[in-house]
Design a protein around this nucleic acid. Structure first.
Lengths: 253, 253
DNA sequence: AAACGGCGTTGATATGGATCAAGGCGGAGG
DNA sequence: CCTCCGCCTTGATCCATATCAACGCCGTTT
């Protein structure tokens, strides 16, 4: 639970964008999904890419953030660290998800790359102006924010009322669903799940310790709910059994 | 923690609105705060009021909700009940807060009146149409949703990482700040706090049991952080001491 | 190839909060 | 006025998870 000392916020260099937004593989999942061709032309011209290594901090809580962006590849986390080192991850960002807090120059949480990461970035003031002038963008942002709010509340149920075992299962379901959605696939028996987080990040996301995470994964393996390929990969013999073990009720992701 | 059986969803009768939106005491806190005079004229004509008694359910999870609205007076909760009766409150709605999930006909949570309640209600399809046609409304909704998301994540930190004692203190701070904001006042020493929830609702909001809530309030009283007037009212000798006992870090409310 | 550091597992023990149980208080209704 | 019920408090005990400690694995550095 103690916070690791990560590298200080990295001023990742902007890489001049290659490729037009029209060809973007994750556009349909992003805030720009409903933009018209001319709007995408405009975005193409103002975007840059930033790359991060796992562990890099993109934005620090309280920091004036110079940019906003969309995750293109990899996974990032939003988290808060209390003064005594306790840490809680409050959200994971998968491809398509927005990095940064719109309409607030200071980020209310830390953003950290949990895997190697690529972000499609925009200058913040410019992005906010564009938002205000582009209903397709603003309406889509509203939709995404409402969905994220549902997810956050769903997670509150998990944090407040689920057992360690249920938390682990819920996490696996969530990770699987997010990964599957990107590939336009559906959950099914025998599916392979990649856990994009270290045990420490999982613990901090689930409100547990790393030891408990490790033990519960062991228990799930023993009871046959999962099969462990390696520490980061597992197989789900029965999706329904996994949902059962998650304590049901997991709608929004 | 076990769910009480509340009355079934009440089809509260619509009461033809008296009074113009221009004169609304809580408009500045509501989604309609940025509307122009003509826009307020329009809203005045389509709004109705609904009244509920403490314990009434306004909207049930999964139900097709016929209306959306704004809390005018009183406090409501959003909650979820797991199949075995465990319950988690995922949000409190104070005057100005929105009841119902925009752009989704089915509510993802139960909405329950925790005190006697008055709601300014709109027919849902009509409200959504109006939203889409009224940038002042839609932009304000976006702002409010982003703020709520920050609050929800703040609460995730509490649920995942704070001790019972810190949870209670954080809750008191939150309740005080929400009440003070309505009166345009600021936190100060010697302030009086009303707890709008029963011990059971507090427990379900904080991820605790009612016994633990009761005991921790007792402990806070003994240690002098609070003075108990009665079960629902308390005095804060030192705001700073309360924040200290809350484990710091409580930005958004 | 040895040493090291990051990550994960496993075991022993401690503890905060849950659970089980009983009783108190105050308002509503007979 | 008495009784009942909802709400709250307090005490005794239990247990799920935290904490403390040691070790294993593996990729990287020297």
């Amino acid at each position: 639970m103690k916070a690791m000392l990560h590298a200080a916020t990295t001023g990742a260099p902007d890489i001049r964008a290659r490729g037009h937004c029209l060809d973007c593989a994750i556009r349909q999942h992003a805030v720009c999904s409903d933009c018209s061709a001319p709007e995408l032309d405009f975005l193409t011209n103002i975007k840059t890419y930033k790359s991060y290594k796992a562990g890099d901090r993109l934005l620090e809580m309280g920091e004036r953030a110079a940019f906003m962006g969309t995750v293109v590849e990899g996974v990032a986390s939003m988290s808060r660290i209390l003064s005594d080192g306790r840490r809680q991850v409050v959200g994971l960002l998968f491809p398509g998800d927005l990095v940064g807090r719109p309409f607030s120059p200071v980020s209310p949480f830390d953003y950290v790359a949990v895997t190697d990461l690529r972000v499609c970035a925009f200058n913040r003031p410019q992005f906010e102006t564009t938002l205000r002038e582009t209903p397709a963008l603003e309406q889509r942002l509203l939709e995404m924010t409402l969905d994220e709010l549902d997810s956050a509340r769903e997670w509150m149920v998990l944090l407040g009322r689920k057992s360690a075992q249920e938390k682990l299962c819920s996490f696996m379901i969530m990770a699987a669903q997010r990964a599957l959605r990107l590939e336009r696939r559906r959950p099914m028996d025998g599916i392979l799940i990649e856990l994009p987080l270290t045990r420490e990040d999982m613990a901090d996301f689930l409100g547990l310790t790393i030891e408990t995470v490790s033990r519960q994964i062991g228990a799930l393996k023993k009871s046959g709910v999962i099969e462990l390929i390696d520490a980061r990969h597992l197989l789900i013999p029965s999706w329904e059994a996994l949902e059962e073990a998650a304590g049901g009720e997991l709608a929004a992701v």
